[in-house]
């Protein structure tokens, strides 16, 4: 049961400063616009908090064809387009070594990298992605019973809690999803272990060992990477102890989409 409110609260409040800058090649004014600084929550997604950024830079780019779908805003860091469907915190952990706070991100309005990024015209797309992640996680945890029994209004509450950064609103519903059905805990632990930015491992892993003892993070890493002796993972900007049990981690350190986003460091 996800009852360690202290941990949950600390995780929820994790935010990072981001400095958005317009790509100099796309500037259409005499002088380049000021960079836009913003605190973004680690648990959120970029399309949910960049409304102001778009509004700010919109005035300084070429006016014609601005509303066309191919001229959608996209973000880039160090020459790599940032995937909006990965939570911001996971992106931070992925590029941890290169990032110096505040995180400098370049804003683009043109040349959308169709081959790398998915289109994201509005927030409904993010919502459906988010809810499908939750459903996937629930299928792994409880064979999908909880999510399918929920009402539309509960789904809405989850989404609005995330969108408006309301901890209590979100966890009022999410708590049910984090309940273990039996003493054994979840059926499988929903997690994604990123090796690089576009490659991750996802497997069926039970929270208990054969002999009934709980699996820890160490067991998981051994299972995933039998050859790596000194493997460890980063999530939420920290490197959790390898002794931490998987069930607990899943209940407390999951992102709002109910997945553990672990980034391998060797």
């Amino acid at each position: 049961m996800a009852n360690d409110r202290e941990v949950l609260r600390e995780i929820w409040e994790g935010k990072v400063p981001v400095c958005f800058q317009l790509d100099p090649e796309e500037v259409y004014d005499l002088q380049a616009p000021d960079p836009f600084y913003l605190m973004v929550p680690r648990l959120s997604y970029f399309p949910l908090c960049t409304d102001k950024v778009r509004k700010h830079f919109m005035r300084h780019v070429q006016q014609e064809g601005q509303d066309k779908p191919e001229n959608e805003m996209w973000l880039e860091f160090n020459g790599i387009p940032l995937k909006w469907h990965i939570p911001i915190g996971a992106l931070l952990d992925l590029y941890h070594n290169d990032i110096q706070l505040p995180w400098n991100i370049v804003v683009h309005f043109r040349k959308f990298p169709e081959d790398v990024l998915m289109r994201c015209n509005n927030k409904e797309i993010v919502e459906s992605h988010f809810l499908s992640c939750i459903k996937e996680a629930d299928v792994l945890k409880h064979r999908g019973q909880l999510v399918s029994n929920m009402q539309k209004k509960d789904h809405n509450q989850l989404w609005l809690g995330l969108l408006n950064d309301k901890f209590d609103q979100f966890w009022a519903v999410n708590r049910k999803l984090m309940e273990a059905t039996s003493d054994e805990g979840f059926k499988y632990i929903p997690f994604r272990c990123y090796i690089s930015e576009d490659k991750y491992i996802q497997r069926l892993v039970k929270p208990l060992l054969e002999d009934g003892h709980r699996k820890t993070l160490k067991h998981l890493l051994n299972e995933l990477f039998p050859n790596e002796e000194t493997a460890s993972v980063r999530t939420h900007g920290i490197i959790p102890s390898l002794d931490a049990p998987l069930q607990w981690l899943s209940e407390h350190l999951s992102y709002p989409d109910n997945f553990l986003h672990l980034i391998l460091i060797t």
Partner: peptide, 9 residues
Amino acid sequence: WRLNIITQL
């Protein structure tokens, strides 16, 4: 381990 995690956070 919990203390560890919480201090890190």
